[in-house]
Amino acid sequence: MTRFFLFLFLLFSTTVFPQNFDINTLRSANLYRNENLDATFKTITHSYAVVSIGTPLTLYAVGLINNDPKLKKEALFIGESVAASVFITIALKEAIKRERPFVTYPEIQKLTTAGGYSMPSGHTSIAFATATSLSMAYPKWYVIVPSFGWATAVGYSRMHLGVHYPTDVMAGALIGSGSAYLSYKINTWLQKTKKKEIL
Score class of each variant (00 low, 15 high):
9 F>K: 06
97 K>A: 06
7 F>Q: 11
33 R>F: 01
169 V>D: 05
59 L>Y: 09
138 Y>P: 05
114 A>P: 02
28 S>G: 12
44 I>W: 00
105 Y>L: 10
199 L>F: 11
6 L>K: 09
126 I>E: 00
70 K>E: 10
3 R>M: 14
187 N>M: 09
16 V>Q: 12
47 S>A: 13
162 G>Y: 03
89 T>A: 12
172 G>V: 05
27 R>W: 05
6 L>R: 04
161 L>W: 01
30 N>Y: 07
112 T>L: 08
42 K>E: 12
170 M>P: 00
124 T>I: 09
160 H>V: 14
62 V>R: 06
88 I>L: 13
109 Q>S: 07
113 T>V: 15
50 V>D: 15
1 M>K: 12
6 L>S: 12
15 T>I: 04
127 A>G: 02
85 S>C: 03
94 E>S: 10
141 W>L: 14
105 Y>Q: 08
51 V>D: 01
114 A>H: 07
65 I>E: 01
69 P>V: 09
65 I>H: 13
195 K>M: 11
1 M>T: 13
188 T>R: 07
136 M>T: 09
188 T>A: 08
192 K>S: 10
74 E>D: 13
99 E>I: 08
20 N>I: 10
41 F>V: 02
7 F>W: 15
183 S>G: 08
153 A>H: 02
97 K>G: 06
123 H>M: 10
176 G>F: 01
39 A>W: 15
89 T>C: 09
31 L>Y: 09
160 H>F: 15
186 I>T: 06
194 K>H: 09
145 V>R: 04
155 G>P: 02
176 G>M: 06
8 L>C: 15
9 F>D: 03
97 K>Y: 00
161 L>G: 06
82 V>N: 01
120 P>W: 05
125 S>F: 06
193 T>W: 05
19 Q>M: 13
153 A>R: 05
123 H>L: 10
55 T>D: 00
72 K>L: 10
162 G>D: 02
43 T>Q: 15
95 A>G: 07
68 D>T: 03
81 S>G: 11
47 S>V: 04
83 A>H: 03
132 T>Y: 03
106 P>T: 10
